[in-house]
Design a protein around this nucleic acid. Structure first.
Length: 325
RNA sequence: GGGUCGGUGGCAGAGUGGUCAAAUGCACCUGACUGUAAAUCAGGCGCCGCGAGGCUACGGCGGUUCGAAUCCGUUCCGGCCCA
């Protein structure tokens, strides 16, 4: 399939021809069935999948993150994570000991998109981390300031009020829009100010190189609840608790670090340390997933470009139409 | 049957004469999001009302009091102990 679609744009009377590459994104709340749809699309339309999931990037975190089953294969001298014959990118490739954040993702994702296009294939981004997807689709410009852990530790000792006062002095403009109770935000804002003086204005520039179609998968709450429950049941049988134990053993991670991964990774250590029993654990994990799905919805709701569809045949038609534009 | 402790909002659980429509946690609803984003954070959550405000509520009934979730009587229900 040829991916060099031609677009024309009018500037006044002058017609300018722009080549835009098409990229599809499949997003939605957890357990909605994104991964299966992305794989089907990839199979039907000669595509490859790019995962946009902040936890699936890590190795040895499979059941808890809902990672697709796959294996690393050597294809043309390159190692590729393959699931159902479909290459997956930005997945299962980092140590859980390390940090992998939106900045890494943004670079890697654009790289992956380009690589896939160069192979004459269709890039299909698939994931539930809205912020990360936005970094690609909206092409947001992140301040080029790396995390300063020492500074963060120091600032973390202060109260939100103190941090807010500090930020006001550094960048009054940012202080007006920031959530003054949110220490994570405040600390990052101060961190940026210390390096750049001020916080650059957030730019969402339409990407001139790519054209995106975002398909959202979602279900009524009741149905999604059932899907979440069913999936949790499967994970339990597959040994999710052992996965967490092994994760700790293999990487020597602290409970705190494991718990920072959230959801099941937060609650299973509580169970292993006998703070809750198994029944409570299952309930807590279910509720955590459910609440997570809510937060994801809130995020995705505001992007009016997302086309909400959950039947594969319809999705496929939408994608084909998009590719034919 | 006797004694004793307790019955509070969807649940758990504070409050023990006025500042109580009632702390806190969970659940539930709505939302935010500039390198932690599965994280982090905000608001709402008896009923009516846009609002001021009104109404009904701390098992039931009846008292005491200017005033009761809080004190007293009684009754129903539950836990524990003794029979």
């Amino acid at each position: 399939m040829d991916c060099n679609w031609i677009n024309t744009v009018l500037f006044g009377n002058i017609e300018i021809v722009i080549k835009k590459f098409k990229v599809v994104a499949i997003l939605g709340p957890t357990s909605s069935g994104k991964s299966a749809i992305a794989i089907k699309l990839a199979q039907d339309l000669n595509g490859e999948v790019i995962s946009a999931d902040s936890r699936q990037v890590y190795k040895n975190m499979n059941l808890g993150t809902g990672k697709v089953r796959g294996e690393w294969k050597k294809i043309k001298n390159r190692k590729v994570f393959v699931s159902e014959e479909i290459p997956h990118h930005i997945i299962d490739f980092r140590s859980p000991r390390g940090e992998y954040n939106i900045s890494h993702f943004q670079k890697d994702c654009f790289k992956a998109i380009n690589a896939i296009i160069n192979h004459g294939k269709l890039p299909i981004i698939c994931g539930g981390t809205g912020f990360w997807i936005s970094a690609i689709v909206d092409n947001i410009s992140l301040p080029q300031v790396k995390p300063d852990l020492a500074l963060r530790r120091k600032l973390n000792k202060k109260t939100a009020v103190q941090l807010f006062e500090q930020l006001k002095k550094l960048d009054i403009e940012r202080s007006r829009s920031i959530d003054c109770h949110n220490k994570v935000r405040l600390i990052r804002a101060i961190e940026i100010c210390k390096k750049l003086g001020k916080i650059p204005r957030l730019k969402k520039t339409a990407n001139s190189k790519y054209q995106f179609l975002q398909i959202g998968i979602d279900w009524p709450q009741e149905k999604l609840d059932k899907k979440i429950k069913k999936r949790l049941g499967n994970r339990w049988q597959s040994g999710i608790i052992k996965e967490v134990k092994d994760l700790k053993k293999k990487y020597g991670l602290s409970w705190k670090k494991i718990q920072s991964f959230g959801l099941a990774y937060f609650w299973i250590p509580e169970f292993l340390r006998n703070n809750i029993d198994e029944k409570q654990l299952k309930e807590k994990v279910f509720l955590a997933e459910r609440n997570y799905a809510r937060r994801q919805r809130t995020w995705f709701k505001r992007d009016k470009h997302i086309v909400w569809q959950n039947q594969y045949p319809k999705i496929k038609i939408s994608v084909k139409k998009f590719l034919a534009q």
